[in-house]
C-alpha cells in the first residue's frame, strides 16, 4: 500500500513535470513573476546557503588536517578540500538546504493559495495559474540553485583558505593553484549540471505538493513537510544517478 502510493505519487509528479514542459514554455511568458521568483528563491537564500558553505569549508579543512598531517600531506589539504567541495559537498549540501528552505516555502505558499481558492481566483482572472505560479517557480529553482551552489562553493573554498591560515600560512595564489591543479572539466561540469536537476526536483515537487494540497490548514502543513522530505530523497537519488552517468560518460 505504501509502495503503491509512492509509485502513484511518482507517476503523478512525472505527469506534473510533463505538463510543465508542455505549458511552461508557451506564451504568455510571465517574465516579471519569474524574475521576482528568482529574487526570492535565489538572492534571498544566499545568506543561509552562504553560511552553510562557509561552515562546510572550514569544518572539512579542520577535520582533515590531523589525518593529513599524519601522512605528512598537509600541502594536499587545499586540493582535497577543493575536490570534495566542488564535486560533491557543495552541490549536495546546498541542494538539501535549498530543499529545506525553498521546497517547504513553495509547498506552503501554493498549498495555502489552493485552500483559500487563490489559485481558482487567478484562473478566473484570465491567468493560467500553472504558468503563473508553477512554471515560474520551477524555472526559478532550476536556474537559481546552480548559481547558489557556485557561490556556496566559492564561499566554502574561501573558508577553507581561512582555516588553513589558522594553523599555517598559505597565500591565496598558492591555495588557488593547489585547488585548480587537481581539477578538471570532468569535475566541474557534471557537478554544475547536476545542480540544475536538483533545482528542478525541488521546484517541481514543492509545486506539486502545494498545487494539489488538500483542503484545510492541515493540508498546507502536510504539503510543506512532504515537499521537503520528497525533494531531499529525490536529490540523493539524482546524485547517485549523476555519479553513474558521469562514470558511464567517462568523465570521472
Amino acid at each position: 500500500m505504501a509502495t503503491s502510493t509512492t509509485v502513484a505519487e511518482t507517476g503523478a509528479i512525472t505527469r506534473f513535470a510533463g505538463r510543465f514542459f508542455q505549458e511552461g514554455f508557451r506564451p504568455r511568458y510571465e517574465v516579471q513573476e519569474l524574475l521576482h521568483q528568482c529574487f526570492v528563491v535565489g538572492y534571498q537564500s544566499l545568506p543561509l546557503v552562504g553560511i552553510t558553505g562557509f561552515i562546510m569549508g572550514m569544518v572539512l579543512t579542520l577535520q582533515s588536517r590531523p589525518t593529513m598531517a599524519q601522512f605528512g600531506a598537509e600541502s594536499w589539504i587545499p586540493t582535497m578540500v577543493g575536490l570534495t567541495i566542488i564535486r560533491e559537498m557543495g552541490p549536495i549540501i546546498t541542494a538539501l538546504i535549498f530543499a529545506g528552505k525553498i521546497g517547504s516555502s513553495i509547498g506552503a505558499e501554493l498549498g495555502s493559495m489552493r485552500v483559500t481558492e487563490q489559485i481558482d481566483a487567478m484562473e478566473v482572472s484570465g491567468t493560467n495559474p500553472f504558468k503563473y505560479l508553477v512554471a515560474t517557480r520551477v524555472l526559478a529553482t532550476t536556474l537559481m540553485l546552480p548559481v547558489l551552489t557556485i557561490l556556496s562553493d566559492a564561499i566554502g573554498l574561501f573558508a577553507s583558505f581561512l582555516a588553513i591560515n589558522l594553523k599555517g600560512v598559505t597565500s591565496l595564489a598558492l591555495f588557488t593553484n593547489n585547488v585548480v591543479s587537481a581539477l578538471t572539466f570532468g569535475d566541474v561540469v557534471p557537478a554544475v549540471i547536476k545542480t540544475f536537476f536538483f533545482g528542478f526536483a525541488v521546484g517541481i515537487i514543492g509545486c506539486y505538493k502545494g498545487y494539489y494540497a488538500e483542503k484545510g490548514t492541515e493540508g498546507v502543513g502536510q504539503a510543506a513537510n512532504s515537499a521537503v522530505v520528497a525533494s531531499s530523497l529525490v536529490i540523493f537519488i539524482l546524485d547517485l544517478l549523476a555519479v553513474q552517468t558521469t562514470g558511464l560518460l567517462g568523465l570521472n
Binding site: 528568482c38 535565489g42 538572492y43 557561490l151 562553493d153
Partner: peptide, 16 residues
C-alpha cells in the same frame, strides 16, 4: 530587486 538579482547571478556566473 532586479539590481540585486542581477548582481547575484553575475557574481555566480563570474565564479564559474
Amino acid at each position: 530587486t532586479y539590481f540585486r538579482l542581477g548582481l547575484f547571478v553575475l557574481v555566480g556566473l563570474g565564479c564559474l
